[in-house]
C-alpha cells in the first residue's frame, strides 16, 4: 500500500485537481490493506510531512466521518460550526486549512478512502467544483481498485 504515492497516474489526478480548483491542498487517504487503519498516502501542496504520520480516526474529523458515513463533507470556515472538538480535525490543524471539501472513495461498494481538497482561507466550494472532485474520485477508484482488498 505504501507505493500509492509512487503511482504517477494517482499523483497526476491529485496535482491536476489542485491546479484546476486553484486550491492549496489535495490529500488522498486510503485504508491500509492489513488492518482497519486509514492513512494519508499522498498530498499535494502540503506545508509539512505531518500527514504521513497521521492515522485517521474512524468517525472523527473530515476523513473519519466520510469513511464512516460514506457521504461527502464540506467545511467552509474552520473551526466555526464544526461537530466535535478542533482536535478531532488533525489534517485541518496540520495543514492550517480553513475550508475543505472531501468525498469518499468506494471499493467493493464500501467507503475505504477519502479525496480531500482544501484552502487556507474561508471558502464555499461550488457545485461545479464539487463535481470536479467527485469525477477525480471516480478516476482514483479505477486506478486503485487493484490495490484495495
Amino acid at each position: 500500500m505504501s507505493e500509492i504515492k509512487e503511482l504517477q497516474a494517482v499523483r497526476k489526478v491529485c496535482d491536476q485537481l489542485k491546479e484546476t480548483l486553484a486550491c492549496d491542498f489535495v490529500g488522498l487517504a486510503i485504508q491500509n490493506q492489513a488492518g482497519p487503519d486509514v492513512r494519508w498516502h499522498y498530498a499535494s501542496g502540503n506545508l509539512n510531512d505531518k500527514y504521513k504520520r497521521i492515522t485517521v480516526r474512524f468517525g472523527k474529523g473530515v476523513a473519519g466521518k466520510i469513511i464512516s458515513s460514506g457521504t461527502p463533507m464540506m467545511i467552509t470556515h474552520f473551526p466555526q460550526g464544526i461537530v466535535g472538538k478542533v482536535t478531532d480535525y488533525p489534517i485541518m490543524l496540520a495543514e492550517k486549512l480553513v475550508s475543505t471539501y472531501a468525498v469518499p472513495l468506494f471499493f467493493n461498494a464500501v467507503p475505504k478512502g477519502v479525496l480531500l481538497v482544501g484552502k487556507r482561507e474561508k471558502y464555499i466550494f461550488s457545485a461545479q467544483e464539487q463535481e470536479k472532485v467527485f469525477k477525480s474520485s471516480l478516476e482514483l477508484e479505477q486506478m486503485l481498485k487493484e490495490h484495495i482488498l
Partner: peptide, 8 residues
Amino acid sequence: YTSTFGII
C-alpha cells in the same frame, strides 16, 4: 498523539 496529529 503522534499518530493523531503527526507531531513527533
